[in-house]
Design a protein around this nucleic acid. Sequence first.
DNA 1: TCTACGCTTTGAAACGATTCACGACGAACG
DNA 2: CGTTCGTCGTGAATCGTTTCAAAGCGTAGA
Lengths: 335, 335
Amino acid sequence: MAVSVREVAAAASVSVGTVSNVLNRPEKVAPETVARVLAAIEELGFVRNDAARQLRAGRSRSIGLVVLDVRNPFFTDVARGAEDRAAEDGMTILLGNSDDNPDRERSYLDLFEEQRVHGVLISPRSDDLPRLERARSRGVPVVLVDREAPDRSFSSVAVDDVVGGAMAVRHLVESGRRRIAFVGGPSSIRQVADRLEGARLAAAETPGITLEVVETAGTTVLEGRAAGEAIRDRAPEYRPDAIFCANDLLAVGVLQALIMLGDLRVPRDIALIGYDDIDFAQAAVVPLSSIRQPAWLIGYTAVDLLLREARDGPDFEPEQVQFQPELVVRDSTGR
Amino acid sequence: MAVSVREVAAAASVSVGTVSNVLNRPEKVAPETVARVLAAIEELGFVRNDAARQLRAGRSRSIGLVVLDVRNPFFTDVARGAEDRAAEDGMTILLGNSDDNPDRERSYLDLFEEQRVHGVLISPRSDDLPRLERARSRGVPVVLVDREAPDRSFSSVAVDDVVGGAMAVRHLVESGRRRIAFVGGPSSIRQVADRLEGARLAAAETPGITLEVVETAGTTVLEGRAAGEAIRDRAPEYRPDAIFCANDLLAVGVLQALIMLGDLRVPRDIALIGYDDIDFAQAAVVPLSSIRQPAWLIGYTAVDLLLREARDGPDFEPEQVQFQPELVVRDSTGR
DNA sequence: TCTACGCTTTGAAACGATTCACGACGAACG
DNA sequence: CGTTCGTCGTGAATCGTTTCAAAGCGTAGA
């Protein structure tokens, strides 16, 4: 059924070795022979079998990427950055999304290991570092995305979420807000926990500021809407005067609840700030203030580190790249 | 370096065949032996080499999916549907995005063929059907997503974009609009062309309706903003009183240009309707009317067809599934 | 005691591309 | 004319898993 090098070789009256050379090192083969082999390939419709290739090579030409949620534009931007850098070296990205589920995360890791990927990029949900250690000890480079290893044992590309969280709350406080609510969860997600920590630090800087936590089960628009409805339905005196959402998706949901399904005004009654500065933040009902992260660059840099680690082998020195978040002020916090 | 079945076999004092059986048909092996082999696997840290597995099996356990743009939430939803259905059969989705670039589309197809994927889902940009024919003739099932084959020679899952386009314009006309602009492009994208065709049909139904086409180079928020700015900057008498965008991303961009960067009011000055009904449509500055498509279901169904085709072999009868679009009215068309 | 049967296990063959030591050939050189 | 060198091409060995015909072994029935 499938056409193999052997048949191509027969058709072109050369050996299989020559066919392989035409495919991989054409300059080593006489031009005339190259032409003959290419003609045979064309005629027979030969397509290289990547599995056989990989088997021989020992590893594949792809890189695994596990993200928390593909539906979040932030992560698709990261993926694009990764894809672009990978393409420069003729590599491919295998994209998996864990949905913040440790089992899914693990199953993607297993899958990637079986595929003998060139390396794994992961924004690990849980603190399953031992597992990552093991992968690495098997020779699979691992780069942490959007998260740093506690002991700097892994390379990582991250943005300081504690600083970002503090930025957001400091901005709210400076705009005159006092009763702040943090909407986000679950706290098992590192990003969420860090942003909250930053928020706490910033809140503590000024006396009289209260910081309440409204925990959500996830970070989607839907969950944001639910949290927003809960806040909207409180008696006015129990409502916060500002909300900081762990990401823009949540903020969009909160916005829907407050404005569209309720009759609160943003920012008059409640100020709102999100995180990630996705494309839609700017076009929201009330343009959303947010904390911007260089998503594309994160992905690009992560693959870059990964490839360097793969090249240098086990004596590679892990490297931590840290980007700084940036405050983007729009109407939702009362410009 | 890497641990192979051979070493596991040696460690457990069995043959390689038995190790393989433990992995694939444990019920055929004596329980005690299974335990011994599993212990050896655990101890040596054995990980199956998928390349070798595939080489033997002849094809991989993944399905290729080429989408036009991963940044469009519509397509990530399709991808999620596909992933969910694939997972039911222990398969994986390989995601590639063509960016509406025929070269990229082709290179992903090549890649998938080399990987010996189980099949390919594609929303083909160009009319490169011959290429798809060829892939299929090599035994790779192909299912068209969001597009139908002219001659019904391929299975497909689609939504009738002509009907959807007509729906949108009919709604605008019924709301009292007369001078309609269609924003979208390039027309080489089938979805864009079809939606425009539907728009033309609907416009022709009522005398006195004009339909102008504002062609864009792509379907992103950015391009929408550019088109919106061009329209905004016209003298009032040359402005349309309604805009139909080929997708929600464009509509969001137009919205930004009209309202945030300009001072036109939606829907008072101009009504606006998009397409896809992505999550953000509802939370836009002015909640966006749109034409909804069952994205997740499209992906799910496409994989389902694909797997059926793979099972039934070459005598499979191509099947066309067609979903109906649905009008969602929100403020942007003046509810 | 012998045959038949079922349950386990065995191990060589196969999948297809790549590699590499080696051979063939011709040209250049002394 | 013999030697050396360079260019091309060869084909067996290899990667790791799965498959499958066959064999080993114990038990039950004849």
